[in-house]
């Protein structure tokens, strides 16, 4: 997995985002076990403690839970996953809209373009 992280934002925040995208897109299915900290840290080329912290964040948001054997699993709460998906999408769209407005393109032009696709 070739992910480029920025060094100017907290790494754990970026990992949380990355994992949320993976969960929302279905890469990690509901009830599926997530890779262990060590492997994820090696893939992302980051500190295992940072991955640990990201997992904790996801647990706080109830997207992920830890079972008796310390394995981490994606939540069964499909509604929550949908909610997160929508949140992520809205974030990205808002970002996109900001960029477009900076270019001087208004919403009507955007809608027309989308309709033509």
């Amino acid at each position: 997995m070739k992910i480029e992280f920025d060094n100017f934002r907290p790494i754990y925040v970026q990992i949380v985002e990355q994992l949320k995208i993976s969960i929302a897109s279905g890469k990690y299915q509901s009830g599926e076990q997530l890779p262990v900290v060590r492997n994820l840290a090696s893939d992302f080329k980051v500190n295992p403690n940072t991955v640990q912290r990201a997992f904790m964040e996801l647990e706080n948001e109830k997207l992920v839970y830890t079972d008796r054997t310390n394995g981490r699993y994606v939540t069964d709460d499909k509604k929550l996953i949908e909610k997160v998906k929508l949140e992520l999408a809205k974030e990205k769209i808002d970002e996109f809209l900001t960029h477009m407005h900076n270019l001087g393109i208004n919403n009507k032009e955007i809608i027309d373009y989308l309709k033509s696709k």
Partner: peptide, 27 residues
């Protein structure tokens, strides 16, 4: 290497200038 660090210590002219968690510092 900054991505793999938990904590960072800045040292300059023989003195510790800073000792902080990396992500906290970034935030």
């Amino acid at each position: 290497i900054e991505r793999i660090l938990d904590d960072v210590i800045f040292i300059s002219n023989g003195e510790i200038v800073l000792y902080e968690e990396a992500d906290k510092l970034r935030k």
